[in-house]
Design a protein around this nucleic acid. Structure first.
Length: 910
RNA sequence: GGGUGAUUAGCUCAGCUGGUUCAGAGCAUCUCGCUUACACCGAGAGGGUCGGGGGUUCGAAUCCCUCAUCACCCACCA
C-alpha cells in the first residue's frame, strides 16, 4: 500500500463521520459509568455556522471527546432554538414575498407555514456541525418549540404564577414597530447615530411674544407633549413658575413643571415632556400626574391629529418644515445621540406604554449570584464573575418582561374572563383555567366560551433558561435528568451571560430540587452546570464582531474545505485562550484588502500539522522490518531514543493534563504540537530512522507504533479526523471497535527530570555541531570527527547509555572522542560547560570567531556578576528558599566555568 | 456616569501561585539545503530594557499605585 505524499483532509474527513455515526460512538444512554454532560448552546434554527459557532463547538467537542476517551459516559446534547422574533420576522418576510400577509392569516395558519418552513430549511447548522466533527448524540437533538419542551415552558410558567412571581402590568417597554412586539432591554442595541437637535419655541400662555425654547431630537412627538419641565434651581426660568405654554401645531395648553431630572446645562435647560414616548418623560409624568397621550400606532405610524398614517421618521421631517414655516424653529443643530434598534429587525425602537407579563427577579437573581459567588458554579476566566456580579446587583436588576406579541413561540397559558379582563386564570389547560374561574367567581355556569386565551407568547429565553433540564425531559419524572444533571460544563460567549447563563442558574435552583428529589439534589447539586467556559468573541482584524451585516465572517464551510476540519479546529483553538477575544484573519473576507491576507493564518498551521503527522506515518509504514537490530550500536541508539521519548512523552502528558484541568485548551494543543513536531518527529524519528534502505528491528518499530498510537489518542479531541485515519493505518487487522475515537486516554507516569536535562544538553550540542558545519559550509552528512576536552564532567555526561552513539548518528560524526590537546583546525565551541572541537580542514575566520567569543564573554561576565551580587546579598541568602539559592549557586559555578573556557579559547585564537 | 479587559519580537498572541519551562510560540525576515517521511519540509541565524513612571520585595513581565493609549460591556443622552 502506498500513501500519498500529501494528506488530503477533504477525502479522509468525509468518510469518518459517517463511520462514527454507524458505530453509534456518540450515543449515550444512562448506565453505571460516571456521566460527562454538555448541552449545546442551541443555535437559532435558522442560523448558519459562523466563526463563533466553530470556536464554541470545537471547545465543546474537545471536552466531550476527551471525556469519552477517559471512559466516561460522554453525552453532548445538540439542538436548536426557535428564536421567536428572528424566525417570525424571517417567515413573515418569506410569506410577503409569496404575496401572503401575516394579518390575513390565523394564528394556526401562520404557525403551519412557520413549521413547514422550519422543517424544510431549519437545522442546517446542525449538519454543518457534523462537518466540523462535533460528536453530539444526534438522537437527542431537541428543539425549543417541540411539544415536550413547550410543555416544560407551560409548566414553568404556571408554577411561577402559583408562587406569585408573575404579574401583569402597564409599563414603559421597548416596542419594535417592525415586528410589532415588545422587546427586553437586552434585545435593544444602542449605538451613536447622527441626528438633529431641533430648538423649538413654545409661546407662554397669556403673552403675545414671550417664549420658552426647548430642544428635541424628535419634534414629531410635540403632538403628544404634556408639559415643559425646568430644573427647580434654574434661575433663568424662575419667572415661569405657575405659567403654562401653548404647544405648537396642536395649540394645547400644558403646564410648566419643575423637576430635578432636567439638566440645566443641556440644550436650553427646558425640556418638553412626552410621557407616552420616552422612558424618562414617563417617569416625570408619573411624578406630576401628567396626561399620557399616545400618538403612535403599533406600526410606528402616526395616529394624528396631523400627519395621520405617516411614518414617525417622515413625520419628523415634515413637522420640522411646518414648524419652521410657522416660526417656531429657533435653530437646528447636528447632533449625535444614541439610538436603540431592535436586535432582530433593526427597526428604531419606540418606548411605548404596554401591558405585559413580568417575572419578579429579586429573589431569583440573588440566588443566581450566590451560586457563582460562593456556590458550586465556576467561571472561566474568573474575572467574568465581576461582570456577572455587576449585572446581578439588586440595584441593576429589573423584572423580566417575558411576554412577546408574536405567534412563533409558546402561547402564554393564561385565560381572561371576556367580560372582565382583569380576571386572569393561569393553568396548564383551558379546562383547569375554567375550573379556577368557576371557583373563584363562584359561578358554576361559566363555560369555556366565557374565557379567552392570552394572545402573547413568552420570550424565547423563557424556554432557553430551561434547556439544561428540558432536554432531559425534566418535567416528567425523568431518569435522564437524574443521571445527567447537573451538566459538567457550559461553553458559551460572555455576551449572553445575563440573558442566558444567569437565567439558567436561576431556573436550576428554582426547579431542580423538586425534579431531582431531595436526596439527589443534595448529593448532586441543583446548579445546571459546574463550569462555565466563556469563549471570547471572534472578531475580524479591525476588532469588529463577526456579523452577517458587516459581511466580515469567513465562510466556515469554505475554510473547512480548504484546511480540513482538523486544520480549522487547530487554528481556532490555538488562537483562543479562554475568554480572550480571537482576532481571526479571514482569508475569504475581502480579497482586495491585502492587509488581511498578509497576516498569519492559523488554520494553515493546523493543516500543515496534519500533513506532518501524515508523513510521520508514511515514514513508519515504509520501513522494512527485521527481528533483531543489526548491531549493538543501533540497539544502543534505539534504546536511548525510546528512553528519551518515554520521558518526554510523560512530561508532555503531565502538562497536557494540567492544562485540561484548568480548561486551558489552547495551551494543551500547543504543548502537543511542540511535542509531536519537535520531540517525536524532529528528534526521535531521526534517531531511530535506519540508514537508507536498511531495515528496523521489530521491537523498536512496535514501540514506535505504540507511541504513535498513544499520541493519536492525545491529539484526538483536537483533531479527530486525521487521528482516526492514522490510527487505522498504524496497525493492520484491527479488531472490531478498535478505533481512535473510543480508545483509552493514557495515564501519565513519572518522568526523570535529571535525564531530560541531559537530553537538553544533547540537543544543545547537536545544535552547536550543526551551526559549526553551517559556518564551515560543510555538507550536512559529511562524517566529521568531534573531540571533547577530557574533563570529569564530560565523562559523566557521555556515560549515559547510548547517548554518545546517538550524537554520532544524528550529528553525522565518524568519531567522537576525548582530547587533552587544544585543536587548531576546524571549529571550536562550547556547549553546556564543555569545550568541543569539530575537526575539518579549514581555518576558521579568526577575527570573526574572536569577536563572537568576546561578545559571549562579555555577556557571561555580566551574568555572573549579577549572580554574585545576588548571592552576596545577605537578605537574599536569608530570605529566599534553599532551592532557589542552590540553583543560583549552580548557575554561578557553570557561568564561571564557561568564562574560563571562553578565556582559554580566546587565548588560543591569537 | 458604572464596570471589565488589553498594552510583551515586524505581525498575531501565550506566559497560571513573584524565583529553571522567564523572556516564549506561530507567522514574517535572513543564510544554507529539492537529503532517502514531509519544500505544507529540513538545518541554522537575527530580532523584545515585557506601554511610561513610582512603589512593595532579597527578587517583578507577573503584586500595588499612578499616568497614557486602545478596546469592550451596562446605564444614559432633550
Amino acid at each position: 500500500m502506498t500513501l500519498p505524499t500529501q494528506y488530503n483532509a477533504e477525502d479522509v474527513e468525509s468518510k469518518w463521520y459517517q463511520y462514527w455515526m454507524d458505530k453509534g460512538y456518540f450515543r449515550s444512554t444512562p448506565d453505571e459509568r460516571e456521566p460527562y454532560t454538555i448541552v449545546i448552546p442551541p443555535p437559532n434554527v435558522t442560523g448558519v455556522l459562523h466563526m463563533g459557532h466553530m470556536l464554541n463547538n470545537t471547545v465543546q467537542d474537545v471536552l466531550i471527546r476527551k471525556a469519552r476517551l477517559e471512559g466516561k459516559n460522554a453525552c453532548w446534547v445538540p439542538g436548536t432554538d426557535h428564536a421567536s422574533i428572528a424566525t417570525e420576522a424571517k417567515v413573515v418576510k418569506l410569506l410577503r414575498e409569496k404575496g401572503i400577509k401575516k394579518s390575513d392569516l390565523s394564528r394556526e395558519e401562520f404557525l403551519k407555514y412557520a413549521f413547514e418552513w422550519k422543517d424544510k430549511y431549519g437545522g442546517l447548522i446542525l449538519e454543518q456541525l457534523k462537518m466540523l466533527g462535533a460528536s453530539c448524540d444526534w438522537e437527542r437533538t431537541r428543539f425549543t418549540m417541540e411539544e415536550k419542551l413547550s410543555d416544560s415552558v407551560i409548566k414553568a410558567f404556571v408554577d411561577l404564577h402559583k408562587k406569585g412571581l408573575l404579574y401583569r402590568g402597564l409599563r414603559m417597554t421597548n416596542w419594535d414597530p417592525a415586528a410589532q412586539t415588545v422587546l427586553s432591554n437586552e434585545e435593544v442595541i444602542h449605538s451613536q447615530e447622527n441626528s438633529k437637535l431641533y430648538h423649538v419655541r413654545y409661546r407662554i400662555e397669556g403673552t403675545e411674544d414671550d417664549w420658552v425654547t426647548i430642544a428635541t431630537t424628535r419634534p414629531e412627538t410635540i403632538l403628544a407633549d404634556a408639559a415643559v419641565a425646568i430644573h427647580p434651581d434654574d434661575e433663568r426660568y424662575t419667572h415661569l413658575k405657575g405659567k403654562k405654554v401653548i404647544i405648537p401645531m396642536v395649540n394645547r395648553v400644558v403646564p410648566i413643571i419643575f423637576d430635578k431630572y432636567v439638566k440645566m446645562d443641556f440644550g436650553t435647560g427646558a425640556l418638553k415632556v412626552t410621557p407616552a414616548h420616552d422612558m424618562n418623560d414617563y417617569d416625570i409624568g408619573q411624578r406630576h400626574n401628567l396626561e399620557v397621550i399616545d400618538m403612535l400606532h403599533d406600526n410606528g405610524r402616526l395616529k394624528g391629529p396631523f400627519y395621520v398614517g405617516m411614518d414617525r421618521e417622515d413625520a419628523r421631517k415634515q413637522i420640522a418644515k411646518d414648524l419652521k414655516f410657522q416660526g417656531h424653529i429657533v435653530k437646528i443643530e447636528n447632533y449625535s445621540n444614541s439610538v436603540g434598534r431592535s436586535e432582530r429587525t433593526n427597526a428604531v425602537v419606540e418606548p411605548k406604554l404596554t401591558k405585559q407579563w413580568f417575572l419578579k427577579m429579586e429573589g431569583l437573581s440573588a440566588t443566581a449570584l450566590e451560586a457563582v459567588e460562593n456556590g458550586p458554579v465556576d467561571f472561566l476566566p474568573e474575572h467574568m464573575l465581576n461582570t456577572y456580579r455587576n449585572w446581578l446587583k439588586p440595584e441593576n436588576v429589573r423584572d423580566w418582561c417575558i411576554s412577546r406579541q408574536l405567534w412563533w413561540g409558546q402561547q402564554i397559558p393564561a385565560w381572561y374572563l371576556k367580560e372582565d379582563k382583569e380576571q386572569i386564570f393561569v393553568a396548564e389547560t383551558p379546562e383547569e383555567a375554567l375550573l379556577q374561574a368557576q371557583e373563584k367567581l363562584s359561578n358554576p355556569e361559566l363555560t369555556i366560551e366565557d374565557l379567552e386565551r392570552e394572545e402573547d407568547v413568552v420570550d424565547t429565553w423563557f424556554s432557553s433558561w430551561l434547556w439544561p433540564m428540558s432536554v432531559f425531559d425534566a418535567f416528567e419524572d425523568s431518569k435522564e435528568m437524574q443521571y445527567y444533571y447537573p451538566t459538567n460544563v457550559l461553553v458559551t460567549g460572555w455576551d449572553i451571560m445575563y440573558l442566558w447563563v444567569a437565567r439558567m442558574v436561576m431556573a436550576g435552583y428554582e426547579w431542580a430540587p423538586g425534579l431531582l428529589g431531595e436526596d439527589l439534589a443534595k448529593e448532586k447539586g441543583v446548579h445546571p452546570f459546574k463550569h462555565v467556559y466563556f469563549t471570547g468573541m471572534v472578531r475580524d482584524n479591525m476588532g469588529r464582531k463577526m456579523s452577517k451585516s458587516l459581511g466580515n465572517s469567513p465562510d466556515s464551510l469554505a475554510l473547512i474545505k480548504k484546511y480540513g476540519a482538523d486544520g480549522v479546529r487547530y487554528g481556532i483553538l490555538s488562537a483562543a485562550a479562554a475568554g480572550g477575544d480571537v482576532i481571526f484573519d479571514a482569508p475569504f473576507v475581502d480579497k482586495t484588502k491585502t492587509a488581511i491576507q498578509n497576516k498569519s493564518d492559523l488554520c494553515n498551521t493546523g493543516s500543515k500539522f496534519s500533513n506532518k503527522l501524515w508523513n510521520a506515518l508514511r515514514m513508519i509504514k515504509g520501513l522494512e522490518v527485521i527481528e533483531k537490530p543489526a548491531n549493538e550500536r543501533i540497539a544502543n541508539v534505539n534504546a536511548f531514543a525510546i528512553k528519551w521519548l518515554e520521558n518526554e512523552y510523560n512530561k508532555t502528558l503531565d502538562s497536557v493534563e494540567k492544562s485540561f484541568e484548568s480548561l486551558r485548551l489552547s495551551e494543551a494543543v500547543k504543548t502537543l504540537y511542540n511535542f509531536v513536531w519537535g520531540d517525536f518527529c524532529s528528534w526521535y524519528l531521526e534517531m531511530i530512522k535506519p540508514d537508507y534502505l536498511k531495515p528496523i528491528d521489530r521491537a523498536t518499530l512496535d514501540t514506535t507504533i505504540d507511541f504513535f498510537e498513544k499520541i493519536m489518542t492525545l491529539l484526538h479531541p483536537f483533531m479527530p479526523f486525521i487521528t482516526e485515519e492514522i490510527w487505522a493505518h498504524l496497525r493492520e487487522n484491527r479488531a472490531e471497535g478498535d478505533d481512535c475515537t473510543v480508545s483509552t486516554w493514557p495515564t501519565a507516569e513519572a518522568f526523570d527530570e535529571q535525564f531530560l536535562y541531559k537530553t537538553s544538553l544533547l540537543k544543545d550540542l547537536v545544535g552547536s555541531i550543526r551551526n559549526a558545519r553551517d559556518k564551515g559550509q560543510l555538507p550536512k552528512k559529511e562524517l566529521l570527527e568531534l573531540l571533547v576536552k577530557d574533563t570529569e564532567a564530560a565523562h559523566t555526561f557521555l556515560a549515559e547509555n547510548g547517548l554518545k552513539e546517538t550524537i554520532e548518528k544524528i550529528a553525522f560524526l565518524k568519531n567522537f572522542d576525548y582530547t587533552t590537546e587544544d585543536q587548531h583546525e576546524g571549529a571550536a565551541f562550547i556547549s553546556g560547560t564543555e569545550q568541543y572541537y569539530l575537526l575539518f580542514e579549514q581555518k576558521v575566520d579568526v577575527a570573526a570567531e574572536r569577536k563572537k567569543l568576546e561578545g559571549e564573554l562579555k555577556q557571561k561576565r555580566g551574568f555572573v556578576m549579577g549572580i554574585e551580587k545576588k548571592l552576596s546579598n545577605e537578605r537574599f541568602v536569608n530570605g529566599a528558599p534553599a532551592k532557589v539559592i542552590e540553583m543560583e549557586r549552580k548557575k554561578l559555578a557553570d557561568g564561571k566555568a564557561k568564562i574560563q573556557l571562553l578565556i582559554d579559547s580566546l587565548d588560543k585564537l591569537k
